[in-house]
């Protein structure tokens, strides 16, 4: 019988990404309900030293494969390693982050293990001893409750939605051999181009300040950048702004851009087209600043200001600075 709630942790450059702790905490909750253990898979090169940190967030056992071929991440190598250790241990639930890496990896592992995967979930629960994974479908216009007819029951969790809660467990580290055969690895990372700006990616940002066609041009974003600086936020954009060449593609939020769930999303000069809402309606708090009181964005906003954003945003930055210090 498949048993245990497992996660596939994510690290980059030898440090855990926050989603790993969100996964661990969520797995702990599910495992407590089932009366089972939490296992974690950690892959990389020179990562054994950090493995124990997962114990802090409720992991009982960490299975570590430390192999030069696992760094940098390739689908080939990581999927083979995850499939191997999972087959050997037969967990009943396997969770990934719905990050760029987690989405790529989880789908391949689902293929290898011939099992079901619910992507980008916003809630997971146990019903009758089995996993029920809740996920937005049709760009968040409805939610589906996914159930499984194969093991492990796999789900990827949307970053920033599940709390990371400290809950110390053993975090006992076991090493395993990823069993990689170099001749089977068909892809190679030839370059990693790092974003030098050091800004937090939209999908991981706790606060996002986003601008649309109402920004009037690339220069218009200066006031948003200033507000973002004060709030430690990342700047996003609507498709209209991206397609006008004011902002890079990586900044686009929406159905054909990024799906984000920050604590705070400030939409400036964005009308709130259905495709834009698709990307940000799971934000915890939404603020809209728009001069058109009929703009559909106000229907989603927790707080709204009907006014010229160029008058409001600089003042908002000033006021926030006073409060945040």
């Amino acid at each position: 019988m498949a048993k245990g709630v497992w996660i596939v942790a994510e690290q980059r450059d030898g440090a855990f990404r926050k989603i790993s702790f969100e996964l661990a905490s969520t797995a702990r909750k599910l495992a407590d309900e089932l009366g089972e253990e939490v296992g974690a898979v950690l892959l990389g090169s020179g990562v054994e030293g950090i493995a124990g940190e997962l114990g802090k967030y409720g992991v009982d056992k960490v299975f570590v494969a430390d192999d030069a071929a696992l760094e940098p991440y390739t689908t080939d190598a990581h999927a083979a390693a995850v499939a191997k250790i999972v087959k050997e241990n037969d967990p009943s639930i396997l969770l990934f982050g719905a990050s760029a890496q987690g989405k790529d990896l989880s789908a391949r592992v689902a293929g290898k293990l011939a099992t079901g995967l619910a992507t980008d979930c916003t809630e997971v629960k146990i019903d009758g001893g089995k996993l029920v994974a809740v996920r937005p479908m049709y760009a968040g216009k409805c939610y589906g409750e996914v159930v499984f007819s194969a093991f492990p029951q796999m789900a990827s969790l949307r970053p920033n939605v599940f709390p990371a809660v400290e809950n110390a467990k053993a975090g006992a580290v076991t090493k395993f051999d990823a069993g990689l055969d170099a001749s089977q690895l068909k892809t190679k990372v030839v370059e990693v181009q790092k974003d030098a700006s050091g800004k937090i990616d939209l999908t991981e940002a706790m606060v996002i300040v986003s601008g649309g066609r109402g920004m009037g041009g690339a220069e218009g974003y200066a006031c948003l950048e200033e507000l973002a600086n004060v709030l430690g936020a990342t700047v996003g954009a609507s498709r209209a702004a991206v397609d006008s060449g004011w902002r890079p593609q990586a900044d686009q939020v929406g159905q054909t851009g990024k799906v984000v769930s920050p604590n705070l999303y400030v939409a400036c000069g964005i009308s709130g087209a259905i495709q834009h809402l698709a990307g940000m309606s799971s934000s915890k708090f939404i603020v809209a600043v728009n001069k058109d009181e009929e703009a559909p964005i106000f229907a989603k906003a927790d707080y709204g200001i009907v006014d010229d954003l160029f008058k409001v945003i600089p003042e908002l930055a000033k006021e926030c600075k006073k409060l945040v210090g």
């Binding site: 689902a110 099992t115 007819s149 229907a299 989603k300 008058k311 006021e319």
Partner: peptide
């Protein structure tokens, strides 16, 4: 199929928002 959508539900409703009234952008921003 290895999984299925057992049930579909509408998205969780958001509580109605608050429009900050007034004429002065600075006051509203504060």
């Amino acid at each position: 199929s290895k999984s299925k959508v057992a049930k579909m539900v509408p998205p969780p409703a958001r509580p109605p928002g608050k429009i900050i009234a007034g004429d002065d952008p600075a006051v509203k921003a504060a």
